[in-house]
Design a protein around this nucleic acid. Structure first.
Length: 482
RNA sequence: GGGUCGGUAGCUCAAUGGUAGAGCAACGGACUUUUAAUCCGUUGGUUCUGGGUUCGAGCCCCAGCCGACCCA
């Protein structure tokens, strides 16, 4: 770093601003490649720029590989073309990782590399620290995520993942916008967290002297908008859950929720398979993707299988025959399954799902009709007391979405909240909180509706075949640096 | 939460309990179409932290911190 500082001083002595305020390029590197034929044949001067990734000096001539956000382009600097002083200054002051601009004409070297033949160069930003090793890049996982800028400089794959994530989000918006959904933003800071089973992050508003929580879901505010008459509404936003960090969990993550009035969960299923297939086609150009070595075919329609049948087929246990925790637990033990004991029947069913069914799913499938006690916002299936119209979409062992025909009976909703309150009193710290304000809103009449939630980070990890959620998050949550 | 593996030069990695090394980067030199350019030379270390065993510890033991992978 001392050497780089000395070069910085050397530039200033030569009257050069190492961080100049103005610079205008005529082409990005990608544009220079795209228009290479006409530009090179006409010997039209171009001005390009980029970070120096490689330097190859051969005495009186130097090759430099420039990379901007679009592509790489080689520059060729020769003492004959630049003059002694400018060439000398380049050799004396330029290091790997500096950002420079180069003006010249495009040509092809005898080894076939498209190159800009420089007539002048300009320092645009002097790097005071060296880049990671040029061939191996950064491999230390901790450094990769702590200093994501270095990861992105040296690992183009990491950059590509973020580009593709942006494309996925863009196509989701486009899909929903084209169907008349209105995008909204609802409060992140809430007096009362709700809409999911999770522990919140708590904070405090000083001026109001009031404890608040960061939202754990989007659900309850979006439903208020539904009540208000916005028939198709969605939000793509960050939610926060105060839980552990793993390959599949980040404490803050991006959630999509959609609500559509006059729709039910059957309609939502059709939308979800269409949405994910459309996004895959537009971003990846295919409906056949590879996830952890398995080929996954996203072509709709996806099979609908009841949760009860899926668990019965995978485990031999029919939970419908066991209305109590004790009975179901006994059946699970009797069948010799290695399933952790749970506090409630609903949690045990959930556990059966995640250990016996989920890992074996490859192609997408909708598991439908969940037990009511797992789903406090879903409407009961007609004629069935303990089954709700809910589905979860799975593929390649990953949950891709969760949806239901939304409960809109305020009295029923109140009863469900009370049930959750009892669970909380019994020690379930993830149980839902009773939200009387929401009940009051629902008493004004919520239209029948189908609602959907999709974890965007998990969807991206799935579509982009990234085994760790952190790869699709620019700055994943890490422990404090010691 | 449990198990396995790892933390050594700026980066990527070596090193039977016995003088800590290599490649890249950096620095000096040669080289006017190179492709991880090449060639010659030089510099660079609190071996994650704290204890312990030993004549002697990067290596063995204990505790901790950080990370990766697998399992829950």
């Amino acid at each position: 770093m001392d050497a780089r500082r000395a070069k910085l001083a050397r530039l200033r002595e030569a009257g050069v601003d190492p961080f100049p305020p103005h610079f205008h390029r005529t082409h990005t590197n990608a544009q220079a490649h795209a228009d290479f034929e006409p530009l090179s044949s006409g010997a039209t001067p171009v001005t390009v720029a980029g970070r120096i990734m490689l330097l190859r000096t051969m005495g009186k001539a130097t090759f430099a590989e420039l990379r901007d956000g679009t592509d790489r382009l080689q520059a060729y600097l020769r003492v004959n073309d630049l003059g002694e002083d400018a060439y000398r200054l380049f050799l004396d002051t330029v290091d790997l990782a500096d950002t420079v601009g180069v003006t010249g004409t495009l040509f092809v070297t005898r080894t076939g590399e498209r190159t800009v033949h420089a007539t002048s160069w300009q320092m645009l930003s002097k790097a005071l620290r060296p880049p990671p090793e040029k061939w191996h890049g950064l491999t230390d996982q901790e450094v990769r995520f702590r200093r994501r800028h270095l990861d992105l400089i040296s690992n183009l794959d990491a950059r590509d993942v973020l580009h593709k994530r942006a494309a996925i989000v863009r196509e989701i918006r486009r899909f929903l916008d084209e169907r008349g959904f209105i995008e909204v933003e609802t409060p992140v800071l809430q007096a009362q967290h709700g809409g999911a089973a999770a522990r919140p992050f708590r904070t405090h508003h000083n001026a109001l002297d009031r404890d608040m929580a960061l939202r754990i879901a989007l659900e309850l505010y979006l439903k208020r908008l539904l009540i208000g008459g916005i028939d198709r509404v969605y939000e793509l936003g960050r939610v926060f859950r105060n839980e552990g960090i793993s390959r599949k969990h980040n404490p803050e993550f991006t959630m999509l929720e959609t609500y559509e009035a006059y729709a039910d969960y059957e309609d939502v299923m059709r939308m979800v398979e269409d949405l994910i297939a459309t996004v895959a086609q537009r971003v990846l150009g295919t409906l056949e993707i590879t996830v952890r070595g398995q080929t996954v075919d996203l072509t709709p329609p996806w099979p609908r299988v009841s949760l009860r049948k899926a668990i019965l087929d995978a485990s031999g246990v029919d939970y419908a025959l066991h209305p109590t925790l004790e009975s179901l637990d006994a059946a699970v033990r009797a069948s010799g399954l290695k399933v952790e004991p749970q506090k409630t029947r609903a949690q045990l069913i959930d556990q059966l799902l995640s250990t016996c069914v989920e890992p074996h799913i490859v192609n997408p499938v909708f598991l439908v009709d969940y037990p009511v006690d797992l789903s406090p916002f879903a409407k009961r299936k007609p004629g069935e007391d303990d089954v709700v119209e809910r589905f979860e979409a799975f593929a390649a062992g990953v949950e891709l979405g969760n949806a239901f025909t939304e409960l809109n009976d305020p009295d029923d909703q109140y009863e469900r909240f009370l049930e959750q309150a009892r669970a909380m009193a019994a020690g379930d710290d993830e149980a839902h909180v009773v939200d009387l304000d929401f009940i009051e809103a629902m008493q004004h009449g919520m239209p029948p509706a189908g609602g959907l939630g999709i974890g965007i980070d998990r969807l991206c990890a799935f579509l982009l075949d990234q085994p760790n959620l952190r790869e699709v998050i620019a700055f994943p949550t890490l422990r404090a640096e010691s």
